[in-house]
Amino acid sequence: MVTNYFTQAAGSDNSTAPASKPVADKCVVKNLNFFYGELQALKSISMTVYEKQVTALIGPSGCGKSTFLRCFNRMHDLYSGNRYDGEIILHPDNENILSRAVDPIEVRMRIGMVFQKPNPFPKSIFENVAYGLRIRGINKRAILEEKVETALRNAALWGEAKDRLNDLAFNLSGGQQQRLCIARALATDPELLLFDEPTSALDPAATASIEELITDLKNKVTILIVTHNMQQAARVSDFTAYMYVGELIEFGVTDTIFIKPKHKQTEDYITGRFG
């Protein structure tokens, strides 16, 4: 079960201190290596994703943060020539989700994902959100309606969408489409939600609404987010991991990383000296 508590690093007594209450492990990454064919994209990464917390992955482009994120729902299985080595232990099952015996589809049924560019299906708003439920064999209209409403409320889209549930999802604005994709992921009650630079294709107003949403969501679901926007990481996350060319350089409480990074490299990146 719960294997350890996170004890907060000294010196950070900010109000939103995430570790003021004890947190449990959701995923423990142990010595993860990842290969695109011959190319090693991730080098022995070890870190912990804590339950009901927002963890941000930052680093310059090409550092492997998206590659790392896509290991959590076995997205790399879709393309041949990719190879994992190491473990990501999912709690409470205490099972390595990278193991060959584990079905990637079972993993994806429990770990949701939101992509860089909004990718709604060319279906109605309702069917987009209901899709995950339908493939789980839920087809009763009443249940679908209830779950879709909940998901849309949680994704802060219910107010805008409730009167046009049968409209094609493409008719929504970019920011609304991204919230729809979040609703689609939320509808199936995921335990962990992966965000791959969810605001990089959006304008500032839509970005703000997505960030607000992420902050609200962390009470319900564990969140792992890739971002190249450091202010965003600072605003939404409780923990931050800084990566560089496939390696995890530093991981810790966000405030610590941003105020007192241990590594010179992290500091350089955060203060904008490179990257």
């Binding site: 989700i97 409320r153 009650d189 319900k220």
Partner: peptide, 27 residues
């Protein structure tokens, strides 16, 4: 909020609605 109440309630009885996740093993 109201929204969250609904969702919390759903989390409780989700076994009634969404099939329980028994195992990660291959189906």
């Amino acid at each position: 909020s109201e929204d969250m109440k609904i969702s919390a309630q759903n989390m409780d009885n989700r076994n009634d609605v969404v099939p329980a996740y028994k195992s990660l093993r291959r189906n």
